[in-house]
Amino acid sequence: MKKEMLEGLSPEEKKELLATLQNEANEEKNNRRQAYEELREKFAQDVQARLNDVVTAVTEFREWLENESRAFRDVMAEYGQLRSESQGGFTMTVGDFRMTVAANNVKGFDERADMAAERLVDYLKRYVQQTEKGTDDPMYQLAMTLLERNKSGDLDYKSISKLYDLETRFDAEYAEIMQLFKESNVIQRNAQNFYFHRRDDVGVWRKVEPSFCRM
């Protein structure tokens, strides 16, 4: 608005004009915020919908691949191409495509490990009471760290195995607890991992990883 037009307005009119301009500015700001929030929600919904499709497709592919590779392995075993001690892994190369199925036994613990862990915690509490360093004792801190559980609440097999190496640092009671851990060790399941490779134009095998972060 031109300066000379403002000069012709009364104080009340200027006040009313200012209020009108402020209302228009606030309305524009609200409209921009509403437009942004609508765009934000639409974008998130689109991402989620496509993500769900991808997760479903990958899950179905994994299940299909596990079943088909297991069936093909049975054919290979019957045909005589698998060693008798094989855990179920094999590599198949056809043309420029190679697939490796790596199977391994996953070790874990039964309920006796929980008993051993509880006994070890009590043992370590009594141990620190007899040392000058108390809970600052490195052996105590190391043992307690190795007893930490993963997100699923399970003891880690490799960590517990490291506790066995500490037997010479403690007494017969500690060794007895370690024996209980060893007795609780069981093979829980057979895990399968799949690896894919494709040979490029110069004959080099390149790893194909169906991972979103590696594409």
Rank of each mutant, 00 (worst) to 15 (best):
M139W: 11
A113Q: 02
R112L: 13
D53Q: 11
E7Q: 13
M92V: 12
K29H: 08
Y195P: 00
M76T: 02
R214V: 10
K207T: 15
R189G: 02
E63M: 15
E78A: 10
T135R: 08
L65N: 06
D201K: 13
L180H: 00
V58S: 10
V54T: 15
R98M: 11
R70V: 15
A103R: 01
D122W: 01
M5F: 11
E183M: 09
S69F: 06
G89E: 03
N31L: 15
L147Q: 01
D156R: 07
F170D: 03
G89K: 00
E78G: 04
F109I: 01
D200Q: 05
R33K: 13
Y164L: 11
Y164M: 12
P138A: 05
N23M: 13
E183D: 12
A117W: 01
Q129V: 12
L180S: 03
K162G: 02
G108D: 03
E78K: 06
G88A: 08
E24K: 13
F170K: 00
Y127C: 04
S159A: 14
V54W: 12
Y79F: 09
T20K: 15
R73Y: 14
F97S: 04
T91L: 14
V204Y: 15
V121K: 15
M5T: 04
D136S: 10
L39G: 03
